[in-house]
Design a protein around this nucleic acid. Structure first.
Lengths: 348, 348
DNA sequence: ACAGTCGTTGGCAGCGCTGCCAATCGGCTT
DNA sequence: AAGCCGATTGGCAGCGCTGCCAACGACTGT
């Protein structure tokens, strides 16, 4: 094959070069190999525009022969908008957020998008830095958890002009699209359930809430509904650590030590509740006779305990999937409340 | 400020334009605003090369005034190597993989890298497609789970020249860097533990192993060590579904129905074992008197059960972190066996 | 006073691809 | 037979940034 002068060594004219030294294959190489123009190769690879069937096969053959992998960095720069979606979550330790990711990546990967993730560790300043960092990749959209952000984060988000979906909370106004459920309402539903069942000495066991705004809202809703039922929290314990089974187990022990005559406990989430359940099992406390337990999230594990956990199932995977769908659509600002479901279980 | 002819509208010369219509701020805008050259701005922003303190402040002021966010797409194209690391995992439902991600993102984010993730759903063909897709972003490195890949995946990986780390398994030769532990050895250790404790009627409860090669290796190691102790598996049940607490609970029920006189069960992982534990609790089977349980992974939840789960703690977060460190280093091919720890617990 | 140095700085050619536009080619209409 | 139209194709100017190189003082040593 003669293609005249060549500016720099190409992959096809130096059989002696080791693989590693060889320069990457570019679209121009494919064009030369397939005897067509660069734009034609580009069109074929993206199935965009028109070209003959013959051209298509030539290009595909050349691509296979050279092992060409398109460079999306270049493609993105040249066109407008990338196929990247940034996802910002507070943690990976709590299964809630992997669930969110799962919902989102499922939809995104099916459409040829890639997810770039960032983990804030519940730190709003870290979130701000991550948002800027993600925006520097010029993503097609951004999913962030929660509605509370620093002014800097809001400014960057606004200025970037990218579509933003805020997740898992609909209790405050959002920036653009909001997908989730009402944590206040969930807390209230839990309280009404417990009050309705006749529990009167109700306690609360939470984790470190200083950064978990949604857990605070649940507690807030819980307290409010309790008050409407003429009740109040009779005991409250907060473990100064992230939510975990361990915090739930040891926290309940401490809570009961301080307030022994509680007849029900509302936990900040299911992990905590599972820990509490284990504590009761270990101590031989009968459930719900001696003590009723109520969680939040509706994890699978709760459903499979010998006595299914009374809890609230939250739409985590659905929220991720819905967000992934909306973040690419051209629609306008909106709030999608996916609701939640109270699971009666057998522990309350 | 007079800067002569301008090719297209800039963000600073059309006060009447709405935010949305305004073209994004570029490095050239910052240079103009700061009265310096583009390369100078670039140097300042990357703290690379030399420049005066005065210049630095001018540039920083201009950046702040314009709200400039660097375009890493362009930066990556112009330079060599991106600040992206691709991470391919089989699932997000099993906490093992979020743990891996956690270890990796912790290290990567601290160094200004971003993680692009892909979920294969335990499908090797999907993995192949994802690898190509991730490579098209020209990542600085790639983390993939496991050592088994399609020929196509291997070819793409090799051809790309990017650093690859294979995770969570060291039982076969790898492509480049390998970080994990021996699943065979873990299975064997479990078997020796059970045999050593005097259990003789041993069963196995697994999930759908057709795609989970590491679980197969554990079972393989388990069987081997059992044989060395003069024992064999007396019962085996495989739930045709991904591992879950539910599969563990119902699977154990079926296993015991078929082989009632087992005195110990080895589970494919802790989720399954937890389900088994719940089944025993529900049925009032005493543990480990009537039946001993042994898991795999060493999840927190197992440690907090009324009777701590006998299991093997695997280095998941450490593997992610180690991989993240090595994938950027210039080192040579190597295998890093992080080992595992047998946790005696109280269920076996 | 002159050449050599070092710290700074700006200019500009790409990086690999896409979008736009013009050119080409058959086949058809009038 | 001339003119027209749609399908197909190639050329090339950027996209925003980095890397290289030359240029420019301000000093220094001789």
């Amino acid at each position: 094959m003669d293609d005249g002068e060549r500016v720099r060594p190409g992959p096809d004219d130096e059989a002696l070069t080791g693989e590693v030294l060889r320069r990457p294959v570019t679209l121009a190489d494919v064009a030369r190999e397939a005897q067509v123009g660069e734009s034609t190769v580009s069109r074929v690879l993206r199935s965009h525009g028109s070209f003959s069937q013959k051209t298509r096969s030539q290009v595909e053959a050349a691509v296979a022969r050279l092992g060409y992998v398109p460079n999306r960095i270049a493609g993105t720069l040249a066109s407008t908008g990338s196929r990247l979606i940034g996802i910002v979550i507070p943690s990976l330790s709590n299964i809630v957020f992997p669930d969110l990711l799962r919902g989102a990546t499922g939809v995104l990967e099916a459409d040829g998008y890639q997810s770039v993730i960032g983990v804030t560790d519940y730190d709003q300043d870290r979130e701000e830095a991550l948002v800027v960092s993600l925006l520097s990749w010029r993503p097609a959209g951004l999913l962030v958890t929660g509605l509370e952000h620093t002014p800097g984060t809001v400014r960057s988000l606004r200025a970037s002009g990218v579509r933003v979906v805020e997740l898992l909370d609909v209790d405050e106004p959002g920036l653009d699209i909001v997908v989730g459920y009402s944590n206040r309402a969930a807390g209230a539903a839990a309280a009404r359930h417990l009050a309705g069942r006749g529990y009167r000495r109700i306690g609360y066991l939470g984790h470190d809430l200083s950064r978990d705004l949604r857990a605070i809202k649940r507690l807030d809703g819980f307290r409010g509904a309790l008050a409407e039922a003429g009740l109040a929290l009779d005991g409250e314990e907060r473990v100064p650590a992230p939510s975990s089974v361990e915090a739930g187990r040891h926290g309940l022990e401490r809570l009961l030590a301080r307030v022994p005559d509680l007849d029900a406990v509302y936990f900040s989430n299911d992990d905590m509740a599972l820990g509490g359940y284990f504590h009761c099992l270990a101590r031989g406390l009968s459930i719900p006779g001696r003590l009723a337990l109520f969680g939040h999230n509706g994890l699978d594990v709760g459903r499979l305990m010998p006595q299914p956990l009374a809890t609230i199932r939250t739409p985590r995977v659905e929220a991720g999937a819905t967000a992934a769908r909306l973040v690419r659509a051209g629609g306008r600002r909106e709030v999608v409340d996916l609701g939640f479901a109270l699971i009666e279980g057998a522990t309350a």
